[in-house]
Design a protein around this nucleic acid. Structure first.
Lengths: 339, 339
DNA sequence: GCGCCGAGGTTTTACGTATAACTTCCGTGG
DNA sequence: CCACGGAAGTTATACGTAAAACCTCGGCGC
């Protein structure tokens, strides 16, 4: 009643462990840090471990981080949490990190694909490095004035400021999509692009434009969610003039919106309209017919990103790397309807 | 070449700022900590701030946390990142935290809905508290031996170990679903439940059993992903005996799987089969027809969880709270087919 | 018999910050 | 003219850990 002692009192420190084990604090640190090969006797080490267990000792991470000058923690910055893709990137990064005793903190950039404001004010954890995935052009700004090593995923390898780059071969992915559709006889296209400015989407657009030169291509932009994509696609498909026979989307989410719009307009997929996605998330197999899409190795992507960061922290300078992607043909794409 | 000075040299400390500003380190701390009301002159404060800006000074969080004994960081433990629901919970929690100068770290429990192994080994950030959302029964174990305040979301309010509870009124949600379907004349049900053991799902099952007593109810279990749900639903709907006319699902994801299975079996939704979901995520409006489902106030949920944690940290003992939910009737439920 | 070495510790220090306790200086009321 | 108090700082200390530097003692080669 007098001193409430909030929740179980105060935590035991290494000094407490030392006292109950009858040794000095330094010995505790050596034993618990596994650096006692020939410095501490077997029985003393046992006594220390027993005391630690008895007291329920847990090292104070803040103190350790302060002493060591590193935290063994990385931050993964992602533009959105509602996009399943980033969940897989995180999984891969976290797995790779764990193998090296690292933890990964997830920081969803609050502005969607916009610049990350002040990631360090929000994610208060001290960090060894940052992995930024598919951030918007200019999101880098938030990291200026910082000496934290930065690994960029899916961003311009020629861009400044990053210690390492890992990319997906989205250009190849887009080429596979256009080859596929051209082979099916399509000549009038709608490109439903992401409204967020980002290098990865710029590459897709440029590749598409080059691969489809000589055909008819319209472009519409939409934020990465079903409702907006639905509306944007409805607008574009209902426009005057000859209707596109194929819609190429920058993301599965957009493609799902297109499928909804097509249904609303009475267009059958793929008989009247072919639709392709990008990412090959679970969402791609939810719609009927299932989406033809580009499979991205998301977990591998996260893993490589983390490995690149670890390499940077080890003083290396990893080469920019590009991961292969593949086309997954499914029911949403078919021969162009007879003119 | 001699000393590579890895990345821009070493970070400036408050002592460096003090030196360039011509004051003591204590003054820097006072000024930058905004505790200089009548202790430091206006000009000195200005000089300190200028020096800090010039050097690009950022306080060392590890040192601050060590000194203050708190981190202003909370960890949100979630069972899965691929479930959009938790993205919204995070958003709400992070927003509430930010208003109090707190950061939120996201920790996806690696075992799906299973127990979180050692969250502190993985999420290396020092923490003030933990919010665990919809964790499996027994996941609490990982937090024993710890004095960290724990707020449980969607878990047994009578269970031990938590400093506070915030729940969703899932029982009411399930009752609204059963009322809705009974009113439409349904008498043969399939309950597609989550395979993960969790209080929230137990409540749904118990409520359903009570509300549907006297009718025919079969139960099937599936992990929370479309592919498994598809298979489980296919199995159950293809079983011998009279087919259920309505499938009640514990989650929108499961319901989407059911819709796929129904299509595969040639059953039309809702004419031959009514399907209901739970959560009202974006996914619910992706399928055709859109899902009748229960809307959960996910962001509010996260917000309240964070506020409860902040209250606990302030020494209060917040009352367990339960948030209302609502039924969203859409196209996937209709009158029971004529016997 | 002496020096040396290694095993098994201990003492000490540093990490960067926040703040309690102390100092100095000046203006002022009695 | 002196004590006093407030303004504007400074000095000193503590947070808990890791590790460098130091100590002690017994055994052993020469």
């Amino acid at each position: 009643m007098q001193t409430p002692e909030p929740l179980g009192g105060t935590r035991p420190t290494s000094r407490d462990v030392a006292r109950t084990a009858g040794v000095s604090q330094a010995t505790v640190s050596l034993v618990l840090g596994d650096k006692w090969r020939g410095r501490v006797s077997e029985r003393t080490a046992g006594a220390v471990r027993a005391a630690a267990r008895e007291l329920g000792y847990r090292p104070n991470l803040a103190a350790r981080n302060l002493r060591l000058g590193r935290t063994r923690t990385a931050m993964l910055v992602v533009p959105a949490l509602t996009n399943e893709f980033f969940a897989h990137v995180y999984t891969g990064a976290a797995a790779a990190a764990a193998r090296h005793g690292f933890g990964v903190v997830l920081y969803p950039s609050p502005d969607g694909l916009g610049p990350a404001r002040d990631p360090f004010a929000s994610a208060q954890a001290a960090l060894d490095g940052v992995i930024a995935s598919s951030m918007a052009t200019g999101a880098l700004e938030a990291f200026r004035g910082t000496d934290l090593p930065l690994v960029m995923l899916d961003s311009d390898p020629a861009g400044p400021g990053a210690a390492a780059h890992v990319n997906l071969d989205v250009a190849d992915g887009m080429r596979r999509v256009t080859d596929h559709l051209l082979g099916l006889g399509h000549r009038r296209f709608l490109h439903l692009a992401s409204a967020a400015p980002s290098w990865t989407f710029d590459v897709r657009a440029a590749t598409l434009a080059h691969a489809l030169r000589g055909t008819e291509v319209r472009t519409e932009r939409s934020p990465l969610n079903v409702a907006d994509a639905w509306e944007a696609a409805g607008r574009a498909l209902d426009a005057p003039g000859p209707r596109p026979t194929a819609v190429i989307c920058d993301d599965d989410i957009l493609a799902v919106g297109v499928c909804k719009a097509a249904r609303r307009l009475g267009l059958r997929v793929p008989d009247d309209l072919s639709v392709t996605g990008f990412d090959d998330m679970a969402l791609a197999t939810v719609v009927e017919p299932e989406l033809t899409t580009v499979r991205l190795p998301a977990e591998e992507f996260g893993r490589r990103g983390m490995e690149a960061l670890l390499a940077v922290l080890a003083g290396e300078r990893p080469r920019p790397d590009t991961l292969p992607v593949s086309l997954v043909p499914r029911g949403s794409s078919g021969p162009a309807p007879a003119a």
